[in-house]
Structures are given as C-alpha cells and as structure tokens.
Design a protein around this nucleic acid. Sequence first.
DNA 1: CAACAAATTGGAATGATTCTAAGGTGCAAG
DNA 2: CTTGCACCTTAGAATCATTCCAATTTGTTG
Lengths: 146, 146
Amino acid sequence: MATAIQAPRHPAGLAQKLADSGLRSTPQRELVYDVLLTKRDHPTADEVFARVKPELPGISLATVYNCLETLVQCDLVRAVNFERGPTRYCPNLRPHAHFHDEVTGQTHDVDLPETLFAKLKSELPPGFDANAVEITFRGKAQSSAN
Amino acid sequence: MATAIQAPRHPAGLAQKLADSGLRSTPQRELVYDVLLTKRDHPTADEVFARVKPELPGISLATVYNCLETLVQCDLVRAVNFERGPTRYCPNLRPHAHFHDEVTGQTHDVDLPETLFAKLKSELPPGFDANAVEITFRGKAQSSAN
DNA sequence: CAACAAATTGGAATGATTCTAAGGTGCAAG
DNA sequence: CTTGCACCTTAGAATCATTCCAATTTGTTG
C-alpha cells in the first residue's frame, strides 16, 4: 500500500556491509547514506537531518545520529571534526586531508600521496605506533566553486 | 642525566604579551599560565580549574575559560582538539603534531621537521592557501611511564 | 501467527562551553 | 587621595551538539 521504494542510487554495498556487521538495511540508513553520497559537502548531522526529512518525514534526529554512527562503524563513512564544531560526515574513504576555508566555512577534501602519510608515520619517535593520521589545513581557498 | 627545569613563577613574557594586546596581568591569568607551563600534559579547562583552585580558591570555572581564551589570543598557548572531546591546552609554541594514545587517553607532543610542514602545504592544489596545518596521530604508545 | 531481536522515536539528560548581569580592581586625572 | 572608567571576575543561566532512555514499531524466524 505504501509508495514504491525508490531504487537506491548507491552501490549495492550498503546492505552487504551492514549484514557483515550483523545489522539490517533500513530505509533510514539507506537514505542517510544516499544523502551523504549525493552531496559531498561534509554535512553535519543537522544538515543530513534536513536533507533526509523531506523524503522520510517521520525520521527523527536521534535516528540520523544513529544511522551516521552505524555507517561510521561499518567503515562506509568517516566522521570529521574541526575545532569543537559539530561533527561532519564524509563518504570519501581514500586517505585524504581536509582543508577548512576560514572565509566560507566550507570543508574540502585534499588528496595527498600515500607516501606522505607513510612518511609522517615514519617520523614518529620509537615506541609510538600510529594506526591513523589526521591532517587538517586551515586557510583561504580562491575558488568557492564546488 | 637531564636536570629538571623549574618553570619560573612569573614568566617574563606574560605581562608584556598581555600589555601588547591592551590587556592586564591578573593573578588568575598568571596562575593559569603557570599551571600550563608546570605540567604540560595538555589539561582540559576542568583540569586547569582543579589545579588552580587550591592556590586561588575563589577562582571560577568561567574565569579559567576566560584566561585560557586570553592566553590563546595572545599566542602564549595553543588550543588542541581531538574528536569532540573537551579542548586541551598546550604551551608548546613550536610547530608540532599531537599523538593521541588510544589506551591511556594521553596526548603527546611530537616534534616534526619544519620541512614536513612545508612539504604538506606544497601538496595543496592551486588556489588553496593554508596558514596552518594540524596533524594528529592516533594509536598506541609503548611507554605509558613518562 | 507468535516470539524475539533489532531499529526507530520523542523527549529528557548530559557535558562542554558561552553568555549575562552584577559586582570588583586598579590606574589616571583632577 | 577620590572618582571615573575600562577591564576583570564571578555565579548561574543558557546554549549547542550529542547521547541516553523507555516505549513503540518493524522485521525475522520458529
């Protein structure tokens, strides 16, 4: 009786990845993931909520938080933080840095050569074993064009 | 063996740096700064509050926040954030990275060659002009004992 | 279908930080 | 010195993002 479920625009990986963790694929999770893939501007949970609500009016903010957390757990999405601001979400899984534009407040992905990440880790003093490195630039970007 | 160096009770630079910004040197500001210099373990505002209170029992948490903010403004201290946790404060002004120990929760300074910071900035795509880079490692450090 | 587990929901609770309004403090000019 | 005034500190209220909670709802399985 309900409206037909729209074909998801994302690869079939979601349901599989969720299942791998013993989790279910739900309309909320699919839509939240879809929203992240569709507009990759590092939205906050609130922004995701706003984008998701028109398509699923009954969804709650708590659920958006839950879904985002789930996606992060499944390694489908990365959480990005900048100076105590609200957490932002990013579906780019390749190792990359973030550039925060101080003027516009926008966050841009910056691809860096894998070698640089390796070099950084190699600079650690003995006894320090890093399994992740986060690199954040702050400054001005010339083109505000996406 | 290295000699333990005692932080001067009244760092000469403080009053001057404050005056440069048209601000006053107060007992609260001096003590907060002193506490940061004395135990450089990246304390949170709450932790600074706890360390400062015995010496100045009337001090309020709001004042600690104010003092810390003032010190950051005057470039005497840096604010360090890690994944939405409470802001931590660091009197190390040289460019350096932070290593976050996932086991102990401790934050360690990691000195990196200046050239690496330069190299990172040079990797930015054209049009991106960074005036700051933050590097955070996450992992395990062998020596929990300092 | 019934039972059970996983998910979702709205609202309350939490934690860090900031705001606000009301006193203090200290120096400079008279 | 005393008064003015800008700067500071203070306690508590307010804010903001996020998490927790208890009560449904939904989906799966026996």
